[in-house]
């Protein structure tokens, strides 16, 4: 994400990016496929562990984030850990920008290395 200068204008620019990414999430989601779970790599295992602690309270079955996504797509695709159509760059970017009512996640909460691991875990079943 490029440096866009300070203040309200820069932050408004960020919002536009978020909206575009949101549109991309919905567009990609419409092409979901099913895939059997392969064994997790070490980094994906790390990603799963961090995801379960940091993300699952909202993105677990029947939780707030899952319900919010289910308003925009079929419920069976609303649980992030079961998705087969996510993109790693998008996952990591949305963690940092926030989307909808989801607040941004700071580096002090989830480090860049752990954010990469979460993205790797969530995209393990996605087609490149």
């Amino acid at each position: 994400m490029g440096h866009r200068g300070a203040g309200a204008q820069g932050e408004a620019g960020m919002k536009t990016t978020t909206v575009l990414l949101a549109a991309a999430v919905v567009a990609v989601a419409s092409a979901a496929v099913t895939a059997a779970d392969a064994p997790l790599t070490a980094r994906q295992q790390r990603g799963e562990k961090v995801f379960d602690v940091k993300c699952l309270p909202c993105h677990g079955p029947g939780m707030w984030g899952t319900n919010a996504l289910a308003r925009r797509m079929p419920r069976d695709r609303a649980e992030l850990a079961r998705r087969t159509d996510l993109n790693a760059v998008m996952v990591k970017t949305l963690m940092r920008t926030g989307i909808g009512s989801m607040p941004p996640i700071r580096k002090t909460e989830v480090t860049d290395a752990d954010a990469d691991a979460i993205a790797d875990y969530l995209t393990r079943n996605s087609k490149p």
Partner: peptide, 10 residues
């Protein structure tokens, strides 16, 4: 900017 954004009031 990306980091400062994460500190805005959500």
């Amino acid at each position: 900017e990306e980091d400062r954004h994460t500190y805005l009031d959500a």
